[in-house]
């Protein structure tokens, strides 16, 4: 396994069974994934497509029915890997009788951090997630957004290298969503790897370097966001100040080259379209689809230079 591969799954499958061992749901079917150091990886998919299941498998909260998952070079069920992992669950599952400080203190104590550093970090994180005013209040009194924030702070208490976020923006207001996205980008800038899952396309598009789209437990699409959104056989032209003649001329040029002019509109967000088309497509033709992952050069762990290299394949 290459040095910069942080997460690797091989034919990872999960079948939920009931108490008697009868098969209930095939939540994940032979997932192959590689997630590289320093990238923000998005798991995308409709409700019930297996995103949370994947994350839980990566954390060792679930045991795979088949296949295996390696996280930071260790099997997912190995507890040691947790030293360098942060996890924000779907909903923040925290002790409701503790206040913000006590919560972070408790989780901090589970790591081998010197007490002074722990206290410093708690203070910093509480300020960072803007809970300074509520630090002494029990979590049972927190609003959903506040719980999300303390959940994130809890996930960062050990300054992890790999952060798994399950729907990080759910329950947050637009401002909170913006802040969360900024934090994620900040983490990436610090060289950390972030794996997040979401069905909010805008969020994913804004922060993710690469995405995987799951549907009914199957991997449908995998690649760099900008590559996935680039439609190869479509050229988009946009210009300002063209006269009607000029436009006609361009139409003629296209017609001469046997092209077909589709539109000359402004470009739209197309992740939503891509997503919907994949879901539609996969419902029409169930089964695994060959994922068009162009063996992309994984991004080097580079602080600022996160500009996507515009590779044409």
């Amino acid at each position: 396994m290459a040095d910069n591969v942080v997460v690797e799954t091989r034919a990872l499958s999960k079948v939920y069974r009931d108490f008697w061992g009868r098969q209930k749901v095939r939540a994940l079917k032979a997932l192959d994934l590689e997630i590289y150091r320093g990238e923000v990886f998005g798991l995308l998919g409709p409700n019930g497509s297996g995103k949370t299941t994947t994350i839980k498998l990566l954390l060792g909260l679930l045991f795979p029915t088949d296949g295996e998952a390696l996280v930071l070079g260790k099997p997912a069920t190995d507890v040691e890997k947790n030293e360098r992992i942060g996890y924000l669950p779907e909903e923040s599952y925290l002790y409701r009788f503790l206040n913000a400080e006590e919560t972070l203190d408790f989780y901090g104590r589970l790591f081998d951090i010197p007490p002074e550093v722990r206290r410093e970090r708690i203070d910093k994180l509480i300020k960072q997630v803007k809970l300074d005013a509520a630090r002494k209040r029990q979590l049972r009194e927190y609003s959903k957004g506040m719980t999300r924030r303390i959940g994130l702070a809890q996930a960062l208490i050990n300054e992890p290298d790999l952060i798994l976020l399950d729907e990080p923006t759910s329950g947050l207001d637009p401002i909170g969503t913006r802040e969360m996205k900024d934090w994620i980008l900040e983490l990436r800038d610090q060289g950390k790897t972030v794996v997040m899952c979401s069905h909010l396309l805008a969020d994913v598009q804004d922060v993710c370097d690469r995405i995987a789209i799951l549907h009914q437990g199957e991997l449908k699409e995998l690649g760099r966001v900008e590559d996935l959104l680039k439609v190869e056989d479509v050229t988009q032209v946009s210009a300002r100040g063209l006269s009607a003649e000029c436009q006609n001329e361009i139409r003629d040029v296209i017609a001469r080259h046997n092209g077909e002019l589709l539109s000359m509109d402004n470009p739209t967000t197309t992740l939503e379209e891509l997503f919907l088309s994949i879901v539609r497509d996969s419902e029409a033709r169930p089964g695994r689809r060959v994922v068009r992952e162009e063996e992309a050069t994984p991004p080097e762990n580079s602080g600022e230079s996160t500009e996507p290299p515009s590779t044409a394949s």
């Binding site: 669950p89 925290l94 081998d112």
Partner: peptide, 14 residues
């Protein structure tokens, strides 16, 4: 039941 255990066992807790 409250799934708090998720956030505990994903720390380096044996």
């Amino acid at each position: 039941k409250t799934k708090t255990i998720y956030t505990v066992v994903t720390k380096p807790v044996r």
